[in-house]
């Protein structure tokens, strides 16, 4: 278990971290969510021993990193925001350097082959890192964190700058790793943590504003309360009809007109599922519903909601 206790980090007079505390339990995938500049990287750099906090401490299995830096660092694998790659080495040379650096004591060839297989870089083993694409470099960065089989794996913004296909692959990889390791991952993308993590810690301006299991956070954020509904029919009357449905709190027109169809943003109060009644009401009037999809909350909305909830 990693215990983060009252961490404060000051840069000059500015607080990058203002007294944050939370625990990371064994075996969970923890999402660390916050906008850029919230203090995510600072926190991760402190946990891994790259930076020292101004005050507070981090205990890994009850041991402070200051008391036993080498012992604690052995338990942690870290992928910083920018993967720390020596681009003049081949993938295999690099991983084998990391293996020696970490002073690992098992069969090198077998261990590295397993990792390359797991993160799917076996086909580029012999290539210079300089010549690899961003997606492959990210994976080599992940492989580096896995060398030595550390218990806790920390990823700082692992999907930034990747294309959608690579993002999906990396997310699947994270989920897989979560089965055998404790994974901590930071991101500023809300759906990412919702898709992967068991628990979410939300940080903003150096303070923790939420620390909950993913489903309960979803409820608190009012997921499934907003829909984009596309209806073919007279605009004013459709809006009037939707507004009169039980549970609907607001209706507005969004997006482009398509023939006689408009897209409406429908919001409803939590705990009332309006989807069925909405479908029936529109069908009765003979206005076909061409599409309906839930609208996820934007990160900005999340912060406003979470901050309001606290005060």
């Amino acid at each position: 278990m990693v215990e983060i206790k009252n961490l404060v980090k000051k840069y000059g007079t500015k607080y990058a971290l203002d007294d944050i505390s939370f625990n990371i339990n064994k075996g969970e995938i923890l999402g660390f969510l916050g906008p850029n500049g919230a203090g995510k990287s600072t926190t991760m750099n402190i946990i891994t021993g790259y930076l020292a906090p101004t005050s507070g401490n981090v205990l890994v299995d009850g041991v402070d990193i200051f008391d036993d830096p080498i012992g604690v660092k052995k338990k942690i694998g870290f992928l910083p925001e920018q993967p720390p790659l020596y681009i003049d080495m081949t993938v295999w040379e690099y991983l084998s350097f990391v293996f020696d650096l970490k002073g690992c004591e098992f069969n090198k060839k077998k261990h590295l082959e397993e990792i390359c297989e797991l993160v799917k870089i076996a086909d580029v083993e012999k290539r210079l890192i300089r010549n690899l694409s961003k997606g492959y470099r990210q994976r080599v960065g992940i492989a580096q964190a896995l060398v030595g089989n550390p218990e806790f794996i920390i990823f700082d913004e692992p999907t930034v700058g990747l294309d959608p296909k690579q993002i999906i692959e990396i997310r699947n990889l994270m989920r897989n790793l979560g089965k055998s390791h404790t994974v901590i991952l930071s991101t500023h993308i809300l759906p990412e943590v919702q898709a992967i993590c068991d628990r979410i810690v939300v940080i903003n301006e150096g303070k923790i504003i939420a620390d909950e299991k993913t489903p309960s956070l979803n409820n608190a954020l009012g997921q499934n309360n907003r829909f984009h509904v596309k209806v073919s029919g007279p605009q004013k009357e459709v809006m009037a009809l939707l507004r009169n449905l039980m549970g609907v709190t607001s209706v507005s027109v969004v997006g482009e007109r398509e023939g006689d169809a408009f897209t409406y943003l429908v919001e409803n109060s939590p705990n009332i599922d309006i989807r069925k009644s909405m479908f029936r009401a529109l069908a009765d009037k003979g206005w076909p519903m061409l599409g309906m999809e839930p609208v996820g909350a934007e990160l900005e909305d999340v912060f406003i909601k979470l901050i309001n909830r606290r005060s």
Binding site: Y50, I70, G71, K73, I76, F78, Y86, V98, L101, K102
Partner: peptide
């Protein structure tokens, strides 16, 4: 400059 020092400084070495 290339941030590789993060690897060295978070590795279990003195």
């Amino acid at each position: 400059r290339t941030k590789t020092e993060q690897l060295l400084l978070t590795a279990p070495i003195r």
